[in-house]
């Protein structure tokens, strides 16, 4: 056995023994009521954050941080990576091209008409949902108006963020209907009146459930071993991918449905019928 491996193993064993001793001998601190924790996670009544004088939920701060991160990344890529793109792509170029192509193809497959705008929208929405859900993993801390430390969760686990994206997706679908079919397109979109609510609350429910499960797990110290790896990391990764796919797929499907051009009804005149009969 190598010396470095021996040192690493002994240090790890020592840390684990120290942790076990701590768990056994230290008295647990008083934690708040689980009901209160859950209520706070859903309603954010007590953890408002000051945003240029406006009291906002932590989810909005997360959204702003996600936007800042993504925009900075996009600017860097635009300045340094895109001008160096080659005909034979490298790994990073391939990743970017795959992402753009995935959303573009999804838009083209589900909506054969007027899909240029749809591709751009679902690319933005998909990136936003995916990156903002992964922000949960970092667990950024912020100070609330009350002066308490607040962990920033996923922006879409905030009902306002979820409603905003759901309603915007519905409006985008409606715009596709108007662009192709005019007033009939509006009618077709309004027929699916439950869509904004279902989309918003699907996002909200899915991301909030992840948050609540995580809160629940971290609330009890006994559940803090091994389980957070599955709940915190795997579930977050999984529902980041799943929710991204679900929203962009639904948006592009409904967009394709309402933006399909009307088939003109052929009026069968008597003369036409007679001519057909004569043949």
């Amino acid at each position: 056995m190598k010396k470095s491996a021996l040192i690493f193993t002994s240090v790890t064993v020592c840390i684990m023994v120290a942790l076990l001793l701590g768990i056994i001998f230290i008295e647990p601190a008083e934690t708040g009521d689980i009901t209160e924790t859950m209520k706070d996670a859903v309603l954010h009544e007590n953890d408002k954050i000051d945003f240029f004088g406006l009291p906002v939920n932590p989810g909005f701060i997360s959204a702003v941080i996600v936007t800042a991160i993504v925009v900075v990344f996009a600017v860097l890529v635009r300045i340094f990576a895109i001008p160096r793109f080659k005909l034979k792509p490298g790994k990073f170029q391939l990743l970017l091209e795959t992402m753009v192509d995935f959303f573009d193809s999804l838009a083209k497959q589900n909506s054969p008409h007027k899909n240029g705008f749809l591709g751009a929208y679902i690319f933005a929405a998909g990136t936003y949902i995916f990156v903002s859900t992964l922000l949960e993993l970092i667990g950024l801390q912020w100070t609330s108006i009350a002066g308490e430390s607040v962990t920033l969760g996923a922006p879409l686990a905030d009902i306002n963020g979820a409603i905003a994206l759901g309603v915007l997706s519905y409006l985008v679908i409606m715009s596709g209907g108007i662009a192709t079919n005019g007033f009939v397109g509006v009618g077709r979109t309004l027929k699916e009146f439950s869509l904004p609510i279902s989309m918003s609350f699907r996002l909200f429910g899915a991301l909030l459930s992840g948050l609540l499960v995580t809160e629940l797990v971290y609330h009890f110290i006994a559940l803090s071993f091994v389980l957070p790896v599955i709940v915190g990391v795997l579930f977050t990764l999984l529902h980041a991918v799943i929710q991204t796919y679900v929203l962009v797929m639904l948006t592009s499907l409904f967009y394709g449905e309402v933006s399909e051009p009307r088939k003109k009804k052929i009026k069968k005149s008597k003369r036409g019928l007679n001519a057909a009969a004569a043949k």
């Binding site: 702003v64 936007t67 933005a124 905030d158 905003a164």
Partner: peptide, 16 residues
């Protein structure tokens, strides 16, 4: 806050 979220998302979408 919904409008703020929408505004934030519009900036992100345009930049992307």
């Amino acid at each position: 806050q919904i409008l703020l979220h929408l505004f934030n998302f519009c900036i992100l979408a345009l930049a992307l």
